Amino acid sequence: MPPSGRVRALVAGLGECGTGQDVDVLLPFLEHPSPRVRAEAVRAVRRLDGSITQLAGMLADPAPVVVRAVKQALRHETYAVPAARL
Rank of each mutant, 00 (worst) to 15 (best):
P2Q: 13
P3A: 14
G5V: 05
G5W: 03
G5C: 06
G5P: 06
R6A: 13
V7E: 07
V7L: 10
R8E: 09
R8H: 02
R8C: 07
R8T: 02
A9L: 14
A9D: 14
V11N: 00
A12T: 09
A12M: 09
G13M: 07
G13K: 07
G13N: 10
L14W: 02
G15M: 00
E16G: 13
E16M: 11
G18Y: 02
T19P: 09
T19F: 03
G20P: 07
G20C: 09
G20N: 06
D24A: 15
D24L: 12
L26G: 02
P28I: 06
P28Y: 06
F29G: 00
F29L: 01
E31P: 02
E31V: 08
E31M: 11
H32K: 04
P33V: 08
P33F: 10
S34Q: 10
S34W: 08
P35F: 07
R36T: 07
V37W: 02
R38H: 04
A41L: 04
A44S: 15
L48V: 02
D49M: 09
D49G: 09
S51T: 06
I52N: 01
I52G: 01
Q54S: 12
G57W: 13
M58Y: 00
M58T: 01
M58E: 00
L59H: 07
L59P: 06
A60G: 10
D61E: 08
A63C: 05
P64T: 05
V65Q: 11
V66H: 00
V67I: 11
V67N: 03
V67S: 04
R68T: 10
A69C: 05
A69M: 01
V70E: 01
K71F: 03
A73C: 04
R75K: 15
R75P: 05
T78E: 14
T78S: 14
Y79W: 15
Y79P: 05
A80Q: 09
A80G: 08
P82L: 15
P82T: 12
A84Q: 14
A84N: 12
A84L: 15
R85C: 09
L86V: 11
